[in-house]
Every structure is written in structure tokens, then in C-alpha cells.
Design a protein around this nucleic acid. Structure first.
Lengths: 340, 340
DNA sequence: GCTTACAGGGCAAACGTTTGCACCGGGTTT
DNA sequence: AAACCCGGTGCAAACGTTTGCCCTGTAAGC
């Protein structure tokens, strides 16, 4: 009943030629006459022939599939990153196998395993928060599957990675706030353990220091990303003898929670206190009180860059040229985005 | 240099048995002695053997990959749906190939083609807005790839689909608003052309009618989902001689835009006017003015249901039993979610 | 007329795995 | 003692495609 899927064999049978001829005709091999090629291609089109990429992989050891693993898909940042990856992949005839780690290392392991079983040609991964060592990714080496890390990258050097550094962006943001005549700039950072927090804090300290001011650690709060955590941080800031006239939040989600609490305290958002943040997520355009400035990390571009890097690696895989095998690093510049 | 990937052959060679024995041992075939099985399994583990699923597909004509195509990943609704799909897939040993149509039919075609080339075992798709006929999905029949439609489903009957109907939810929402003593309930609907708009409108009319009230079409506005479109709709509602005391928005994004405009007009949100909406997206928990009630369509559950349905179809694919081949429909109930 | 060259195309192996069938040796039936 | 059964295992084909090598026929070169 289900009329069989056309194969190269079928074409060969109908045209009374051998399968090898068909194969070569389809790939424009010079040894095949134009006439035969035309006949083959015509019939292929008529039968709606599509090569079975699994069989090709089997022969060529390439699957034309690349794996993409992110902590969460629901975060604006990652969904945009995936779009960047996907677009470049499609341009190059690749498809993406997808998985989420939900920020858990066991899940990450499971997904990495699944990708390995599927014999992906390469992997782009943004590490889960729990992932400090990447031994589960070492096994990919044995399978000769190259890995490109994306945004949440290991700090070790011996890897390919695309990321951005928030240090400069933070310094710029502080400069800008000073120009708006803000003098008491507070900062709600994320948990101290993660690198992203350190980058931001370093930038904050540098930014304040450049104005020859002393950094007041009372102005630096921390949140665990929960609503309560952020509320408490804001509460402490507002309770200071000299409360801040600007608050930088770790990201736009923290920003929203901060605003929510400040509103309850009758703070005039972006008047009494200017609110700044990181990420520049899409919903900022819809919310009543977006941050006046947000540091955009251009996830789409990061995704594009990561996929291009992977394509590059795949190209040069067979090369004996050692130089082509060096580990690639790419730092994407950030930019301030203003909401008026 | 790249130490070779372990195969079943390698195991056979080392253990001095045939590949068939290894294959059977690995799959717990009853004819193989426990001793041999143990030896094989032990060595397999030691070598870190992982079956090459491409080769298996080749033999079994199953890839253990299912394709998932959605209009956008950045929408909260779809990202949750995908998570539901993914979790069920993983439980069943399947991995997902992912693609976005960006609400364009040409992109949808391209992605469907890519999935076909990869010989996915099945496909779950939420149609793009542009897709009215699905001839490009007909070609999947020839490849014997079953399709389950998800949320954005074709209205025709001869398909498998999981969806929810907003009619009841809308009626319930109106009832609830009446109970809050709201008498002039306005409605900002989406473009008339899409089914989702019709369902909502029908529910709105039914809800109002049940109170024996006449439906005032001045209270029914429309937006094209742009910020301006929504702003104009709100402006018209506020300019009415008898402005509304409740506004239902097409979804939470429209809701946000509506609130943003209303704030400018000094409306006291959720006091002067109660705001209600659909979708119950995650950021509602962070925003300053979430809708007091939102109709949750449980995208995660829908995703789960869709994947389970597909697993079911795949199970019964070989069945000659016609009953098992009937087209499956599943309607997921919605629920009101209140934000206090 | 004979060799040589080359264009055009076919044969068959290989990729990793599954599976129907055959085989073998020892124990049970008759 | 012949016939049978059965647990345990091996053989080989098959899946769709690519590719190194070989074969054939015709035309050019001598």
C-alpha cells in the first residue's frame, strides 16, 4: 500500500543502467555522459527521489546533523541563539538535533549521549549551571565529534568557543549613567559562584573607579534569581541612608522583579531611580517599565558565529594541517541598547 | 589517531564469537546463554560501546528521531510545548530534530524537506500562519512518515491532532468577570481570519449572552498584534461614552501593550479596569501588571499529548488492524489562572 | 591492420547491524 | 540404535549509497 520510497536502485532498474552510474550521474561525475546524466536527473525528479541521508552517513560517516544543547529554550537569549544557529545550519544543508539540559548535569549527560548515538557531525553546547567539569564531553572526542561552546563556556583554553565579555559593557553602562547625572549607582548581581557575576562585578568596580570614586559595597547586592531574593535586595537598597539613584540588575528578569517591588514602595521608575540591566530581551518592548539601558549580548549573532565556527572545523577536519586544527575562540562585542 | 569507535564487530573479534551472537546477546535474545551474554555486555561496557543508530535505521528503517516544527521558538507557548514533546521523546528513546517556520510557508517547506531527507520516524508540527493547504505535508505520506498536528491544526478531519478549544475558557472567564461585578467587558481580538480569533469571539458572545445581555460590538476591538494596533484599540475603548470596566486581550503580549497604553492614560490597572488575557506566559510572574486572569492552554501538556499520540501511531504502524489506524484527535482542556 | 588511448559505464566491496536459517553436539524418546 | 529435540551459535544476506577498479567499444596513431 505505501508505495515504496524511491531509491537509486529503482532509478537504475527503470533506466537499465547500474546503480553506480546513477550515483555518479546524480553527483555530476565527469565520467558520465551528459545524456545519461540528463536522463537520470529527469527520472529522479519525476520520482521525487530524495537521497537517504542515513545510508549516506553510513557510507560517508557524515550525518549532516549537528546537535545543539542549551540549558533552556524558554529564555529569550537561547531561543534567539538557536535561531542564529539554525539559519546558518540550513544554509549549509545541515539540520539540528535539539536538546535542553534544564540546567542539570545529569540531563545534560543524557542528551549528549543521545546525540552521540545519533552520530551528529558536531555539537554546539551552552553548559548547564551545574556543569563544572566536562568529562561527559570528553567521550565525544573518541567519536571524533567536534564541540563548539556557546556563551556558557568553560574557562579552560583547549576548546572552541564563542562568547561575550560583559566587562566592557558594564563599564560603558556606568559611564552612561554618570552622564545622566546619577551618582549612586547600585548593582544587583547574581550568585558569586558563576563567572557571569564576576565579569559584571569587575566591570562595575572598574566603572566606578574610573570616576575616582570609592566603591561602596553596600551598593552591591546579590540575588539568587528568585523573586524574593530580588525583592530583599531592592528592599535593602531602598533602606539605605543614601539610597541609590540608579540600579543595575543582573538581567532583565531580575530587573522586572526589582521594578515590581520598587513600585510597591512608590518609587517612580526611571525617574527617582534609573533602572539598567543586561540581555535586552524581547518582552522589554512590551513591558510598562523597561530598563532605560540594557546590555545586548546579541545571541543571534553568537549563534551564527558558533555555527560558522563549527562548519569551519568540519571543513578542515581531514586536514593534516595542524594550524587548521588550533582551537578557535571568538568574542562577540556587546552593545548598550536604550529604551526611551 | 582518533581511536576507532567500538562496533559490534570489534566485540565479536575480541571475544572470538560471531557478530550475530553479539547482536543477539546485546538485545537479550533467549537463545544466547547467560554466560555469553554477560561476557558480551561486560566488554561492551568496557569499550564504551554505543550502537550506531544510523546503521540500525538502515536495517530497521527506523531512525528514532522525530521532527518538530513550530512557527517560533521564542514564544513562551511553543517553548513549553517543545519541552513537553522533548521529555516524552527522551523517555522513549527518541531524539528530536528541530525547525522553525518563522510563520512562513516557504520556510516550512524547506524544513519539512530537511526532515524528510533525514528520514524522521514521525513529525509534530504547528502550522505557520501562512499555511492554509498542506500539500507539502502530503509528500510525507509517500515516505510513510506519520504527522501529528499540534495547536495550530488544520480544520480538516483526516489528520492526527492535539489542540485546545478556547470557547469554553472564554465563557468561563466572562462568568468570572461578571462575578467580580464587572458589567462592561471589552474584548481585544486578533485578526478575524485566524481560527483562534473566531473561537474566542464565539466564546465572548456566548458568555455575554448567558447573562441575557446584548452584545455591544463597540466593545469588541481588533489588533494586528503590533504595538500601535493594540494602542489604537485601547484608545477607542477608553474614548467610549461608557468605557469598559474589564478588558480581555487576545493574549498576554497584547495584554502588555494594552496595559502600557492604559498606564499613559492614567488608568488604574486592575482597579478601574480589570485586565484578562490568554496564554499565561511565564513573564506574567515578573511583570508589574499581570492580567488578573489568564486562560492557560497548557502547552507542556499539549506537547506531551502530541508526542504520546505519535508514539502510539508508531507502535501500531505495522498493525493491519484498521481501527488502530483511525485518525486521532485530542482536545486538551484549558483552565483559568488567577494572579493576585 | 595493429596497437594505444580514452570515454563511458558496470562490478563488487564496504559501511554496522539484524535476522532467517543452518549447523552441531548431547540428551530423550521410541 | 535410530529418530528427535533443543540450547547455543555461526553464516550470510540485506538495507542504500559510494567508489576503486575493471571491462568494452570506438577512434586515433602508427
Amino acid at each position: 500500500m505505501s508505495e515504496s520510497i524511491p531509491t537509486i536502485k529503482e532509478i537504475a532498474r527503470r533506466l537499465n543502467v547500474s546503480v553506480s552510474t546513477v550515483s555518479r550521474a546524480l553527483s555530476d561525475h565527469p565520467r558520465i555522459s551528459t545524456k545519461t546524466k540528463e536522463a537520470v536527473k529527469e527520472l529522479a525528479k519525476a520520482l521525487n527521489y530524495e537521497p537517504n541521508s542515513k545510508a549516506i552517513f553510513f557510507k560517508q560517516k557524515r550525518s549532516f546533523v549537528i546537535g545543539v544543547i542549551v540549558p533552556h529554550i524558554y529564555e529569550d537569549f537561547f531561543s534567539k541563539g538557536i535561531s542564529g544557529i539554525e539559519d546558518v545550519a540550513l544554509e549549509n544543508g545541515y539540520t539540528i538535533l535539539f536538546g535542553q539540559s534544564h540546567d542539570r548535569i545529569d540531563k545534560e549527560r543524557q542528551v549528549v549521549d543521545a546525540m552521540k548515538n545519533q552520530r551528529v557531525d558536531g555539537l554546539i553546547i551552552s553548559l548547564s549551571k551545574e556543569t563544572n567539569k566536562s568529562d561527559h564531553l570528553k567521550t565525544l572526542d573518541a567519536y571524533n565529534i567536534p564541540v563548539v561552546y556557546f556563551d556558557r563556556v568553560p574557562s579552560l583554553p583547549g576548546v572552541n568557543k564563542v562568547f561575550c565579555n560583559l566587562f566592557e559593557g558594564t563599564v560603558d553602562m556606568i559611564e552612561w549613567l554618570f552622564k545622566q547625572d546619577r551618582k549612586r549607582i547600585a548593582f544587583i548581581n547574581g550568585p558569586g559562584a558563576i563567572i557571569a557575576s564576576k565579569e559584571r562585578l569587575d566591570g562595575y568596580i572598574e566603572g566606578i573607579s574610573r570616576r575616582k570614586l570609592k566603591v561602596d559595597m553596600q551598593m552591591v547586592e546579590q540575588t539568587d534569581f528568585s523573586e524574593e531574593g530580588t525583592h530583599k535586595a531592592v528592599a535593602r537598597l531602598l533602606a539605605l541612608k543614601k539610597p541609590p539613584d540608579a540600579i543595575i540588575s543582573f538581567n532583565d528578569y531580575v530587573h522586572m522583579d526589582a521594578v515590581k517591588y520598587a513600585l510597591k514602595e512608590h518609587v517612580k521608575i526611571n525617574e527617582d531611580i534609573l533602572f539598567a540591566s543586561y540581555a535586552n530581551i524581547s518582552v522589554n518592548k512590551h513591558t510598562a517599565y523597561p530598563p532605560v539601558v540594557s546590555v545586548d549580548q546579541f545571541p543571534y549573532s553568537q549563534g551564527e558565529a558558533a555555527m560558522k565556527m563549527l562548519m569551519d572545523i568540519l571543513q578542515h577536519k581531514a586536514d593534516e594541517d595542524a594550524a587548521a586544527k588550533a582551537f578557535l575562540h571568538k568574542e562577540i562585542p556587546v552593545a548598550l541598547v536604550y529604551n526611551s
